[in-house]
Amino acid sequence: MVFWVFGYGSLVWNPGFEYDEKVIGFIKDYRRVFDLACIDHRGTPEDPARTCTLEHIEGAVCWGAAYCVRGSPEKERAAMQYLERRECEYDQKTLVDFFKV
């Protein structure tokens, strides 16, 4: 099994899960914006913190890092569970084309 995660914000410097390969590159038609009000670990309901999210914009380019998790379904599940707990947006799974440099 192979599972890829695209990191475009804090995951670029601190993915927080076990991975087998890191590749620098970009995705097309998305841009990084700081408009997600996060209250789980970066803010509070009274004072939410702004964090990165992706916005679909035709022609845009978003640079980041893709992390490859190889092995078993358990290893993939552990990475996904970590992301769902840590990151506000990783409850949405979207397939994108990644272009490596």
Rank of each mutant, 00 (worst) to 15 (best):
T51H: 11
G7C: 02
Q81A: 13
Y67D: 10
E74H: 10
A78V: 06
D40Q: 07
G7W: 00
S72Q: 03
T53L: 10
G71T: 02
Y19M: 04
G16N: 01
F34D: 15
G7F: 01
F6A: 01
W63N: 12
R77E: 13
F99V: 12
L36M: 02
E55N: 07
V101F: 05
F98T: 08
D29L: 05
R50T: 01
F99M: 05
G7P: 01
C88V: 14
E18K: 06
D97R: 13
V96H: 02
P45Q: 07
L54W: 00
Y30C: 05
R32T: 02
R42N: 13
L54G: 01
D29A: 00
D91H: 12
K93N: 09
C52V: 09
V23L: 14
R32S: 12
A66W: 03
Y19H: 15
T53F: 07
L36Q: 13
E58V: 09
K75I: 07
P45D: 07
Y30P: 00
K28C: 06
W63C: 05
M1L: 14
T94D: 06
V2T: 15
V5T: 02
R42P: 00
L11W: 01
P45K: 04
T94G: 00
C38L: 01
D97W: 06
V5R: 03
R50M: 10
E84L: 05
E74A: 13
S10E: 12
T53K: 15
R70G: 11
R42W: 14
V61L: 10
L36T: 04
V96Q: 05
G9A: 13
G59C: 03
H56E: 15
C52M: 09
G64W: 00
F17Y: 08
R85W: 14
A66C: 09
G71L: 01
C68N: 07
L95E: 13
V101S: 15
A60S: 11
F34V: 06
R31I: 12
L36C: 00
M1V: 13
V12N: 12
K93D: 08
R31P: 08
D35A: 06
I39A: 11
G7S: 08
C38Y: 10
V12W: 01
F98A: 11
S72I: 00
A79Q: 00
F99H: 11
T94M: 02
V33K: 08
M1C: 10
T51M: 14
G59N: 01
E84A: 09
G64D: 06
G71M: 06
I24N: 15
V69R: 05
H56P: 03
D40I: 03
